[in-house]
Amino acid sequence: MKRIPHYFLNVLFTLFLVFSLICTEMTLLMQRSALNVNMFHVVVQQEGLTDKAYDKLETYFKTRANSTGIPEAVFLRVVDKEMIYNGIMESVTQSFEYLNGNTSEYQFTMDFTEMEQSVTEFFEEYADVNGYQKDDIYQEKLTAVIEESEKEILFVVDNFKFTMLYEKGWLAKLRQVVGYLNVAVTVCLAVTIVLAVIIVFLNKKKMINIPYWLGLSAFTAGVLVSVPCFWVTHTNYFSGFVVTDPQIFSAVVGYLNLLVNRAFVMAVVTICIGIVGFGGFGALCLFQRTEE
């Protein structure tokens, strides 16, 4: 008679353990991947975001040359891929400085001294050759061209649109989440351990069942996470991202796909742990039977 309530207690605590494991996986994923600066570095490398940003700026300056008469070479002889790569990394670093509470606001800027020099030289040369008067209007035009170009470079280099996220207040909300993330991971891990101990305690009289219940929790948690990850990957769900700009598309979709891949790997590892649990349980049963 005692067996049925004991069985349901095992089922109940296993169910709790399943969700506790899922929460632990998700918080770990957030801490180690989603809100980790290294993840963004990997996306920048994998998706070739430096090249895409450079191509975009090249097109911008070429197009602008059609209406301004300032050759794209004036900008592109100083705005190279190295400068863009450093800018991208700086935007990521600064955003994480803010997210981790090391700075009070998101401050991202780049060193444009060389570009300003290049544009000024072009203006001066043009004015000298064509006898153009270097008056207030000349100065206004020079300032406008430099400001517009800097604004565009900062916009393009900010691959993940941290500036927009900051201005809309979303980065501030994420900052709060990051602040609680370590606590959340610790709590989830502690709850998982407590639940596992409870299951061990429930089965102390028949310890052979412990790997089964623990394995079942891990297996179920792994399956529940892996199925949606598999579906998202298989259907290429993120490729329907509505922003079609190649650079933003690659940054966002690359980031999301990498995140899902890591969640999937984590889920597969959890499934494997579950299978090991089942295997251990089967082996113990066989061993017990042989002894009997």
Binding site: V11, L15, I22, Y212, L216, T220, L224, F281, C285, R289
Partner: peptide
């Protein structure tokens, strides 16, 4: 006796695993 008891428990463990999967999926949904 013990041997036959072990045999009878096998389907329970399998059904429990399936039940747990379905129950967890339903709770998640």
């Amino acid at each position: 006796m013990a041997k036959s008891k072990q045999k009878n428990h096998a389907p329970v463990f399998i059904l429990t695993a399936v039940f747990m999967l379905v129950l967890s999926a339903a709770v998640s949904a």
